[in-house]
Structure formats: structure tokens, C-alpha cells
């Protein structure tokens, strides 16, 4: 018994282009069970597939492990079950072709294991290193593995999203099973391609290290992915592995942790509900976010342009507008702007 305990945090968002979020995440600290699933298929059917995958894991894995089924078998049985259920549901014409990726982690008392189908990923962050544990079941990755495609060309390949394996495609989909020898201090990060397609492993590791609060780290990563286009649903689960006594201590310190969580949440809420007046073209515009860029990526978006041109703004405030002037609400922005215009 290595006496490990896990604490997970996760966050998932539709992104800026997709209307619905077909990603699902699963967090079950008591069972040490975590997963991300990226649903595929039209008419929101992808969401049904990822729902089924996550729900089946949640329904079966803790029970199986409680009956002393080892984690690898518990995960594989649950995912086979999920595959079967998705295939059955896909018989309905409006859901035909629906499928889902699934990358699931169990941090067990004796061993830790990852089950994996599709192009979602698991990373291990240990000390200063970050390592991708899973192999993408995508066409380009298969080509790279076979030596038919250079790794550098893979990221740019047009068909990189084409999956070779997923739950719901095939009655006996092979499921990758990886045994992961975890140590206290390790962090496992599960991501869907909307996230790891936009954020590098090094950046993920940097955010995880810099942000002790898991929830906040997850939101930061998803927002970063969104800031870089947000073309796809983006999801992340961060699992921190600790010694069991440390976990107990953490439970004693739960009120403090809760307070920190609330503070972090408030910070994120603040970010989401932050507005400022800035400049777009030669007009004053209302922006959401903060007037800053990270690695050239703006941390803000334009809410609306105003009819006020920069020429109408008093020279004393033009420079400050270019830097961004924070406002509480869009209504505040209008009132403030009236105070900034040049008076003859």
C-alpha cells in the first residue's frame, strides 16, 4: 500500500465558436476516478456520447473497485460497457455516427492506471518535467508512428482531427491501458484536443506549477485556449497526487481551502465580468477581460464599439484609453465616456 490520495479539479467550456459543449469531465475524488471525454457527431449527438461514457464510468468503476476488481479491469469493463451503450444509442438515425474519446484515470490504493481511446490526452507533471502519457488515436499520429509523416508536419496537417479510434465506432474498440506509477507531488493532467491543440505541454506545466488552486489553474488553461481562438470545446482535469496523511490534513484545513477556492473563484468571476474601455480602430470600444496580452495573445474581446471617435476624446484621456480604462458595468462605461469627451 503506497498510501496515495488524489485531489482533482476540472473545467470545461464550449469555446468561442461552438455553441454547445460536447466535452464532458468526470471528477470523483473518493474513488480516485477522473476522466475527460470529447464527443463527436452532429446535432449535439456528440454530447450524448460523451455523457454516456462519463456516466458509465461513474456508475460502474467505483462499485467494481469496491468489490476488489483491480482498477485496470474496472476501467476496461466500464469503457466496453460505454462503447456498447453508445453503439445502441447510435442506432437512432439522428444520432448515427456519434462517438466519443475518453481518457480516464484511476488513482488506486495499490496502483494507478489510465484507460484511453481517441485523441484526448493525459500528461504527467513530475518535478520540472512534463510528459505525454497517451498516444493520440488520430490519423496523423498513426502516420507519424509509422514514419510516414514527420512530427513537425503533424501539427499543421489538415486531417489531424480524424480519429482512428473512439467509443461508439466499433463493437470491439481496442482500449489502451497504461499503468502509471505515481509518486506524491505528481500531477496528472487530462485534456481534450481543444485545450492541448492550443496550449503547449510546457505552458500547461507552467500554469499548474504557478497556480496552487486546481480549479483556478483549470480555468486559466481553458481561458488561454479560448484566447487563442477557442475554435473547439476545451476541457482540462488536473489531478494532484499526495500522501494520504497529507490528504487528511488537507481535509482538516478544508475551511481554509474553501476560502482559497472562493477567492480564486472570485478572481475568475472578476476576470469574466471585467470590462474596460479601449480603442478599436479610431473608435472607443467596450471590451471584456483585462487590457493585457500574454505571449501576444489578447486577454480581452470586443463587446461593442461606441459611436465616439478618438478625435472626440479629450487629449488628456486618449493615452489612458489606449491603455484601457476599467469600468464596472457596460452602463458605467457610457457614463464615464461622457466625462472623457472633449468639451469646447
Amino acid at each position: 500500500m503506497n498510501g496515495l490520495a488524489a485531489a482533482g479539479a476540472g473545467y470545461s467550456e464550449a469555446g468561442r465558436v461552438r455553441e454547445v459543449n460536447e466535452d464532458r469531465i468526470l471528477l470523483a475524488d473518493r474513488a480516485g476516478l477522473y476522466a475527460v471525454a470529447d464527443g463527436l457527431g452532429g446535432h449535439a449527438a456528440g454530447g450524448v456520447a460523451s455523457d454516456l461514457a462519463v456516466a458509465t464510468l461513474r456508475a460502474h468503476v467505483p462499485g467494481l473497485m469496491a468489490r476488489d476488481v483491480p482498477p485496470p479491469q474496472a476501467l476496461v469493463r466500464a469503457l466496453r460497457e460505454a462503447n456498447q451503450t453508445i453503439l445502441e444509442h447510435a442506432a437512432a438515425p439522428e444520432r448515427s455516427g456519434m462517438a466519443t474519446t475518453c481518457t480516464a484515470l484511476v488513482v488506486g490504493a495499490r496502483e494507478s492506471v489510465i484507460a484511453h481511446v481517441g485523441d484526448s490526452r493525459a500528461y504527467l507533471i513530475r518535478n520540472r518535467e512534463v510528459r505525454q502519457l497517451t498516444a493520440d488515436h488520430s490519423l496523423v499520429e498513426e502516420l507519424v508512428r509509422r514514419g510516414d509523416l514527420a512530427p513537425d508536419d503533424a501539427a499543421a496537417a489538415a486531417r489531424r482531427h480524424v480519429l482512428t479510434r473512439a467509443l461508439g465506432l466499433d463493437a470491439d474498440a481496442p482500449i489502451d491501458l497504461l499503468s502509471v506509477p505515481l509518486a506524491p507531488g505528481d500531477v496528472v493532467v487530462l485534456t481534450t484536443d481543444g485545450l492541448h491543440g492550443a496550449v503547449t505541454p510546457e505552458e500547461i506545466a507552467a500554469v499548474v506549477r504557478a497556480t496552487p488552486d486546481g480549479e483556478e489553474a483549470c480555468r486559466t488553461l481553458v481561458h488561454l485556449a479560448n484566447a487563442r481562438g477557442g475554435l473547439d470545446n476545451a476541457s482540462v482535469v488536473i489531478v494532484r497526487v499526495r500522501r494520504r496523511w497529507a490528504a487528511r490534513l488537507a481535509r482538516v484545513a478544508a475551511p481554509a481551502a474553501l476560502a482559497a477556492l472562493l477567492a480564486g473563484g472570485a478572481g475568475v468571476y472578476q476576470f469574466e465580468h471585467s470590462y474596460f474601455l479601449g480603442v478599436r480602430g479610431d473608435r472607443v470600444a467596450l471590451m471584456r477581460g483585462v487590457p493585457a496580452r500574454v505571449l501576444g495573445v489578447p486577454l480581452f474581446s470586443v463587446v461593442r464599439a461606441t459611436p465616439v471617435s478618438m478625435a472626440a476624446v479629450a487629449p488628456a484621456y486618449r493615452g489612458r484609453l489606449r491603455q484601457g480604462i476599467r469600468v464596472r458595468t457596460p452602463e458605467d462605461a457610457d457614463a464615464l465616456l461622457a466625462d472623457l469627451v472633449h468639451r469646447p
Binding site: 479629450a314 487629449p315 488628456a316 469646447p344
Partner: peptide
């Protein structure tokens, strides 16, 4: 802080 006239001239 700056000092401005009534037309916000610096």
C-alpha cells in the same frame, strides 16, 4: 495627478 482646464486641456 494632472491639472486640467475646464475643457480638459492639460
Amino acid at each position: 495627478g494632472r491639472i486640467l482646464d475646464r475643457r480638459l486641456t492639460v
